[in-house]
Design a protein around this nucleic acid. Structure first.
Length: 445
DNA sequence: GCATGATCATGC
DNA sequence: GCATGATCATGC
């Protein structure tokens, strides 16, 4: 913990110099890298590591404006938490919040001069290992910092996302914003929820809107991380196509081909008669020519779903989601539930339909995200489920109880059970989107 | 034909 | 071993 004067000298106008300085944090905690005042050391600081790093490691006071933290270098400093997955690999703990969305301001901006672009064009991202029980100054910067300039292809996606968010505000629909609206750039909730929820006025509607911030979605941060760790290869790197066009284009070559023809073209065949993931495997292979999902889809947190549709236009099955735990859901809030998280995502539906000749063909690939009112209906079903779990977990919402969603078993076998609040073991259950609802969504009826 | 209950196949 | 996406089986 030496405090050599020279050690803290760097050029605030030069991104490279700031980066070089940040390198000295690698492998250390803030507490190990600089001498912190007693009051900071003793605090159980759970809050803002970024501010502490700026103040004590960079000895820098960021401007209190919409400019980036280092205005002359045009560089924004970010710290973000990592956790380890089951295999011990690092992944982003959460989305990376960039800057608040100013509903009054954004409608007057255009992309090129937007405060978001000004702030996030060039970023220095410091990754630390998250540990709930440690105060932030004892969390370790386990990787080298990432000096990140948004690539052209990513920039196109982000620009489209930004414009979509702006458009909603222009339409007086800021209260309907959802993270699922967009691919890389999310409009995430910010500030308190619940009864003291923080709300904002919006310019083109009297409806109060939730306070939101621009953020890089978790999936996108993960891909930055992966790229940082091993060097990324992107299919969009030299393309101006939007993400949607790029993925849909891949499907266009296969549209109206029979399953057998698709299978033959991909040189990938059904493993056996009961190969349940076959359609999904085909879709993944169309996207990537391997069984890895298309890198941009992961970045955007897109939910790939394959649908098989009867000759009369009805999906053969309702759409299942991960199982929930009876004991957990009774204490959860809708906006923190996994069903909510899923429904906020953008979906890519890959649709196989049986023709009047009895042949199943790949007929359509489409993006979708769930409309606001339908999400409210899903919320109702979820709340009902939570309520029922508390009093009688045997009586959960059926398909006839809602046009949108229902609850049904989802288990490995008859022994795959979970404890209910009534003290009984009951077959695991999950939420489903009704087949009839999906039919409407994909316009097959 | 559909609701409901139950389970399968795969990949990690 | 288990979560996940997907499908099967039955009965009305």
């Amino acid at each position: 913990m030496t405090e050599d004067k020279n050690e803290f000298e760097y050029d605030k106008t030069s991104p490279e110099s700031i980066y070089e300085h940040a390198l000295k944090l690698t492998g250390k905690t803030l507490e190990e890298a600089v001498r912190l005042p007693e009051n900071v050391v003793n605090e159980k600081n759970r809050g803002d590591l970024g501010s502490l790093v700026e103040k004590y490691f960079f000895r820098h006071q960021p401007p209190n404006t919409s400019d980036p933290d280092f205005p002359e270098a045009g560089l924004e400093l970010k710290t973000t938490g990592l956790v380890k997955d089951s295999k011990g690999n690092y992944k982003a703990k959460e989305r990376l919040v960039l800057t608040m969305i100013n509903y009054q301001g954004i409608v007057k901006e255009d992309w090129e001069t937007s405060s978001l672009l000004k702030k996030s064009r060039l970023m220095l991202i410091l990754f630390y290992l998250f540990n709930k029980s440690q105060p932030v100054h004892r969390r370790r910067f386990v990787l080298k910092p990432l000096l990140y300039r948004i690539s052209t292809s990513d920039l196109n996606v982000i620009k489209n996302d930004w414009q979509l968010i702006r458009k909603k505000v222009l339409e007086g629909r800021a209260h309907e914003l959802s993270e699922g609206d967009t691919f890389y750039l999310g409009a995430c909730r910010k500030g308190s929820g619940g009864p003291n929820e923080s709300l904002q006025v919006q310019p083109f509607s009297s409806e109060p809107a939730k306070t939101r911030a621009f953020s890089f979605k978790q999936g996108f941060v993960n891909k930055l991380l992966t790229g940082h760790l091993e060097g990324e290869v992107s299919l969009l790197e030299n393309s101006n196509l939007s993400l949607e066009d790029a993925t849909l284009n891949r499907f266009s070559e296969y549209l109206d081909l029979s399953i057998q023809e698709v299978s033959k073209r991909l040189n990938y065949f059904k493993k056996n008669e009961n190969h349940k993931g076959f359609h999904r495997d085909l879709a993944n292979r169309i996207l990537s020519n391997s069984n890895q999902s298309f890198v941009e889809l992961e970045k955007a947190g897109i939910e790939l779903k394959t649908l098989r549709v009867n000759r009369n236009g009805k999906p053969r099955e309702s759409m299942s989601f991960p199982a929930f735990k009876f004991m957990k859901i009774i204490n959860e809030d809708w906006e923190y539930s996994s069903f909510f998280e899923k429904l906020e995502k953008k979906f890519l539906f890959v649709i196989f339909q049986e023709g009047s000749d009895g042949v199943e063909r790949l007929t359509k690939a489409m993006y979708w995200n769930m409309p606001y009112l339908d999400r409210m209906e899903a919320k109702r079903v979820w709340e009902k489920t939570k309520f029922q779990c508390r009093i009688d977990a045997k009586k959960l919402p059926k398909i006839s109880d809602s046009p949108v969603a229902h609850v049904r078993p989802k288990a490995r076998d008859g022994n795959d059970k979970e404890l209910t609040p009534q003290g009984e073991m009951q077959l695991k259950q999950c939420f489903w989107l009704n087949a009839s609802y999906i039919a409407k969504v994909i316009g097959s009826l």
